[in-house]
Nucleic acid binder design. Sequence first.
DNA 1: GCTTTGCGTAAGCAAACGCTAACCTATCGG
DNA 2: CCGATAGGTTAGCGTTTGCTTACGCAAAGC
Lengths: 102, 102
Amino acid sequence: MIAPNAYGALADPTRREILHLLGSEEMSVSALAAHFPVTRPAVSQHLGVLREAGLVDNRKKGRTRYYKTRQEGLTELIDWLAYFDVFWDRKLNALERYLDKR
Amino acid sequence: MIAPNAYGALADPTRREILHLLGSEEMSVSALAAHFPVTRPAVSQHLGVLREAGLVDNRKKGRTRYYKTRQEGLTELIDWLAYFDVFWDRKLNALERYLDKR
DNA sequence: GCTTTGCGTAAGCAAACGCTAACCTATCGG
DNA sequence: CCGATAGGTTAGCGTTTGCTTACGCAAAGC
């Protein structure tokens, strides 16, 4: 599945925070909505945007629907950034820090 | 200078293409506008958004204003993506290919 | 000087966005 | 069954966005 508009999905701060929350663990819509000042339908709509962008996935368990980040969707963004030279500088620096922590 | 909203700046496809054009070389506003179906003022407004986001810079030479990408601004996006595991997978793969070429 | 060129800015408008309130279906528990 | 719960959907709203047209101003060119 291709991601039509992964960039626009990141434009909203709530959606970015949702992605980070779902990055660490699977979460239900209600549990997700508890983290934000907006109503549950608003979060549901954000999840719809993220799903169409290919950035999240979900599975249904009973009446609860669990969402999680769909990491393949993020590769588009990473590939886009790879065009810029700065990518390599940051990459090597960050990689160094990353490897130091293991 | 901090970048208040680098994410939203990427939401528009015209702005993304502008960034790539400016990544390879410095360009004037008119030269930039020639690449797009929209008018020059529209491009000028896009450049204003990119400038406020810290993604482009410009210098004035006579009556011409040359824009170029401001690579430091992209670091926010890279840092954001670095939270996800897929970032490191892509990074390590790309680094491998990169090193193989030397 | 006067005209042209390069660019920014302002006004106005249609479309898209983010939100809430209200409603719907589906599932669980009694 | 029946009521409560989980979550998607819709209508309507104010706001923001992206665009054009029109204007203003500084730098060149004549």
